[in-house]
Nucleic acid binder design. Structure first.
Length: 403
DNA sequence: TCTGGGGTCCTTAATCTA
DNA sequence: TCTGTAGATTAAGGACCC
């Protein structure tokens, strides 16, 4: 008896080209051919969200501060993002991808993995499938997409980046080592500025160089986990699993002020607005979160988060706002002008664990403890003046005095 | 240069619990 | 009941991605 040959996995990665900018150019023919930047408007705080290829010729790229983009190309068209419109186009794109296979895993509005395994008999070779994806998206939406196809997610993703815009790259299993070898290490997944610094210090520039190093050496430099991860990637080893409809794990909203802000009334009002949006999204998606997170950024980009676990999951904006504001007031945060404020919820309750009557009507000890602490804080406020309480817990000695 | 917004995942330290 | 400890959980920060 001979064993059947193991099935060849094929993973596709589809990535829309300069998505936001392409949607704008598609809908406004008068912009076509001109440098176009979607993001913050010049003169405001913010960065580039997307730049078309004409703007990229000026060195403009996403995440660049808008002031820098403006210096490089004052004549470009600058537009604020219209997320609602991009989301609609995104839904069209995913519907089209699902005509190829139901095994589509969204990564973001403009990016997805597809499990193409076994489609050869239905559609044709991986090259044929790739051309078919591009054709259907162009015909259905008027947008171009770059597609990478390979034996796993890593190779598919690197494939879609390999030729852009409007590219198609298919890497067969036996081509993987040659495909990866000349690539800069920075093209590997999860390798950002910090890790790149380490590699640069070690004189490692290409994937081939990385592959030649013993794992034990990498472990000393990067730690066990990261070393194993990059070592596997350098060998072209990665998962071929595609998970359609991966659920989200958190919902959050945040905003950066034009000028840093200290006034608590305004901060509270902004937090209320953000909380309402978070709660609305949660209700729409029928999600209730158990963890409320407050995010605060001060001048100098000093960023802090504070979390509180609720006894009962919620999507009620009053509950979320109360907890977020409590974290703001009593989370031992520095009392400084605020650059950004944000709020989020996470840790969804499982459908099989509805809150019990006991959860609702017999608050556990944790809640009682919290409430006692708050009472104490209120008494501190009365005794020592409100200013003391604006930020930061009462000190131990202050609490002792009150007992 | 001066750094958005919305996410995920990992590491580490503190705390809880068996 | 006390104590030490190991493992699990939680909280915070950071790196990274699009």
């Amino acid at each position: 008896m001979t064993q059947p040959a193991p099935k060849q996995h094929w993973v596709g990665h589809a990535d829309l080209d300069a998505f936001y900018a392409s949607v704008e150019a598609r809908d406004h023919p008068e912009y076509r051919g001109r440098p176009l930047v979607v993001g913050a408007l010049p003169g405001h705080r913010g960065v580039v969200a997307a730049a078309n290829y004409a703007a990229r010729k000026f060195g403009i790229h996403s995440a660049m501060p808008i002031a820098e983009a403006y210096r490089r190309c004052p004549d470009a068209i600058y537009l604020p993002p219209d997320m609602a419109r991009y989301s609609r186009v995104s839904r069209d794109i995913f519907r089209i991808l699902e005509t190829i296979t139901p095994m589509v895993e969204p990564v973001s509005v403009d990016e997805a993995y597809l499990d193409l395994t076994g489609l050869e008999r239905l559609i044709g070779s991986p090259e044929t499938i790739g051309r078919e994806i591009k054709r259907r998206i162009l015909e259905g939406t008027g947008l171009t997409v770059s597609v990478g196809i390979g034996p796993n997610r890593l190779i598919a993703k690197l494939g879609s980046e390999y030729r852009k815009p409007d590219g198609l790259t298919v890497v067969h299993p036996e081509q993987v080592p040659a495909f990866l070898s000349p690539m800069p290490v920075a093209s590997l997944r999860g390798l950002g500025r910090q890790t790149e610094k380490i590699f640069s210090r070690l004189g490692i520039k290409t994937v081939a160089q990385l592959r030649s190093l013993p794992l034990s050496y990498l472990e000393v430099q990067l730690g066990k986990r990261a070393a194993a991860n990059f070592h596997q990637q350098a060998l072209g080893i990665a998962s071929a699993e595609v998970v359609p409809g991966r659920g989200r794990k958190s919902i959050s909203r945040e905003t950066t002020f034009e000028e840093d802000l200290l006034d608590q009334e305004t901060l509270h009002a902004v937090l209320r607005r953000l909380t309402a949006k978070v709660a609305a999204t949660a209700r729409r998606e029928q999600l209730s979160g158990s963890v409320v997170t407050l995010k605060i950024r001060f001048a100098g980009f000093e960023t802090h988060t504070r979390q509180h676990r609720l006894t009962v999951p919620t999507h009620d904006e009053r509950v979320i706002l109360r907890e977020a504001w409590r974290l703001f007031l009593h989370g031992k945060l520095p009392r400084k002008p605020v650059r950004l404020i944000g709020v989020g919820i996470s840790d969804w309750q499982q459908p099989d664990s509805e809150p019990t009557q006991a959860d609702l009507f017999e608050p556990p000890q944790k809640r009682e403890k919290d409430d006692r602490l708050l009472e104490t804080l209120d008494r501190v406020a009365d005794r020592f003046g409100k200013g003391k309480l604006q930020l930061g817990y009462a000190t131990k000695s202050e609490r002792r005095k009150l007992r």
